[in-house]
Design a protein around this nucleic acid. Structure first.
Length: 212
DNA sequence: CAAACGATTTTCT
DNA sequence: GAAAATCGTTTGG
């Protein structure tokens, strides 16, 4: 499979990139544990003009510093004191845009994911939210700033090709405070049934049992 | 320096 | 449906 290059993330249209990431795969190699999963849900955070973004109105703090760094690195922050939320920084350096990974579908490394999550969960429950996705992948705030061209966390090009109608577009979750921007259609997702269809037959078995 | 709070998840009623 | 868990970041005095 082909790794996604920095140019992909360097573009300005964070909304488009968030949509294009659906169907790509995310890979981690952490503490000797290799894991991979399909990206099934993302949210775009559109920089300084987006009231839902940490970087709204140019806010530059110790935490948001990462969003101003070059495209193609990880922005990981702690949410509610418990959850390590993983984002990809996109756009021109200094233009603080990011995409939140909100859900994944496991492809390989099921046992590792199960042990990290503490249970033998069904496939659609392994990474059914941004916090659980990071947990399954082993991503923590210590990975903040990680270059996605390295060998710890990376993304690869689409392994399934969703049709336009396969991707459900709607408002983002948990951003009610963002006034009019709370309703923007910046959330993209595949339903579990659609995901299963796209990953059908032998391919699924291969991936779940660890073949690249 | 104190206090409030959050791009969430799980559990309990 | 309500509430707890839990802590770094942010903001205000």
């Amino acid at each position: 499979m082909t790794r996604i290059e920095p140019e992909f993330f360097l573009r300005d249209d964070v909304i488009k990139i968030a949509c294009e990431l659906i169907g790509c795969s995310i890979h981690t190699n952490i503490n000797g544990h290799k894991v991979s999963a399909l990206v099934t849900e993302t949210e775009a955070y559109n920089g300084v003009h987006d009231k839902a973004a940490h970087s709204y109105d140019g806010r530059f703090t110790e935490r948001t510093r990462t969003m101003y760094r070059p495209a193609g690195i990880a922005y990981v922050y702690l949410c509610y004191g418990i959850h390590h939320l993983f984002n990809v920084v996109v756009g021109q350096q200094g233009d603080p845009k990011a995409i939140l990974l909100r859900a994944i579908w496991p492809l390989s490394g099921m046992e590792v994911m199960h042990s990290r999550r503490g249970k033998e969960l069904l496939e659609h429950k392994i990474g059914s939210g941004p916090g659980t996705s990071s947990e399954a992948l082993g991503i923590k705030t210590s990975h903040n700033g990680t270059d996605l061209q390295g060998d710890v966390i990376w993304l690869e090009e689409r392994i399934v090709q969703p049709k336009e109608n396969d991707i459900i577009v709607g408002p983002r979750i948990g951003v009610d405070h963002a006034e009019e921007d709370a309703e923007l259609p910046y959330r993209f997702r595949l339903l579990p049934s659609t995901t299963k269809q796209l990953l059908n037959g032998a391919l699924v078995e291969d991936r779940i049992h660890g073949n690249p």
